[in-house]
Computed example of a mutant assay.
Amino acid sequence: MSRVRVLVIDGQGGGLGRQLTAALAAGCPDIELTAVGTNSIAASAMLKAGAHRAATGENAVVVNCRRADIIVGPIGIVIADSLLGEITPAMAAAVCQSSAARVLIPINHCDNIVVGVPDQPIGQLVTAAVEKVKELIR
């Protein structure tokens, strides 16, 4: 049986992606963990946090979304021009059109506000996301 392919996508400084990658690497050791940053700083942070491999940029997002079983990242990865403009329309479309399950972290930044979701510390959001990934794997 092949391992579940989990893709973490993040941008800007890669802080959320780093935390997600570290928590997934520790909590789900049997997954194939790939990280894609919208920039090299984000990709490097996730690679150092335990991703098996990492890549950078629009084409890397598009290609890896096609092969992922689960995609994890901030909600902005499905919104064109979010993350201070780092998410291109092609990136958002690739995430949305992927057959993968999407575990999206409700981060209220860059004029994208998710109503009905209370503000929570990033650590709690990361824990909840990892628990959801574990549930999807089962």
Rank of each mutant, 00 (worst) to 15 (best):
L125M: 14
V95M: 07
T88L: 08
D119E: 15
V114I: 15
A101I: 12
A35S: 04
L125E: 08
A100F: 02
R5D: 02
T21Y: 10
R66Y: 01
K48I: 12
L24R: 08
A101D: 11
T127P: 00
V117N: 09
I70T: 06
C65M: 03
I71A: 10
R102K: 15
S82T: 06
R66E: 00
G85M: 07
G57Q: 07
G27V: 15
S98Q: 09
L47S: 04
I70E: 04
Q124V: 12
K134Q: 15
A45G: 05
S98I: 10
L84P: 03
I137F: 11
I71F: 00
H109S: 11
N39W: 01
M46N: 02
A92I: 06
M1E: 07
I31G: 03
V72A: 06
Q19S: 11
G76V: 07
R18L: 12
A93M: 07
P29C: 14
T56D: 09
D69M: 07
G57T: 08
V62E: 02
V114Q: 06
G50L: 08
Q97V: 10
V126D: 02
A25K: 13
S98G: 10
G14Y: 05
V61M: 00
G116Y: 14
S82F: 15
N108K: 14
I41G: 00
L104H: 05
D111I: 11
I70H: 00
M91I: 01
V130F: 12
G85C: 09
I113N: 03
L16E: 03
A26N: 07
V95R: 04
S44F: 12
N112I: 13
P89Y: 05
A90F: 12
V115W: 13
G116N: 08
I113G: 00
V36P: 00
G13H: 08
L33S: 06
C96D: 11
L16R: 05
L136V: 12
D119F: 15
C96Q: 13
D81V: 07
A42Y: 03
C96N: 12
A80K: 04
T56E: 11
V126A: 04
V126K: 01
A55N: 05
E58Y: 00
N108T: 14
V95N: 05
G123A: 11
Q97F: 13
A35H: 04
V61C: 03
V103C: 09
A45N: 09
A35M: 03
T21K: 07
T127L: 11
D69N: 02
A128G: 07
A42K: 01
A26L: 14
R138W: 12
I75R: 04
A93S: 11
K134F: 15
M91V: 00
I87T: 02
L20C: 04
Q120R: 13
I71W: 01
V130Y: 09
S82E: 11
N59D: 13
A23D: 08
V72W: 01
N108Q: 13
I105A: 05
N64Y: 00
G73A: 08
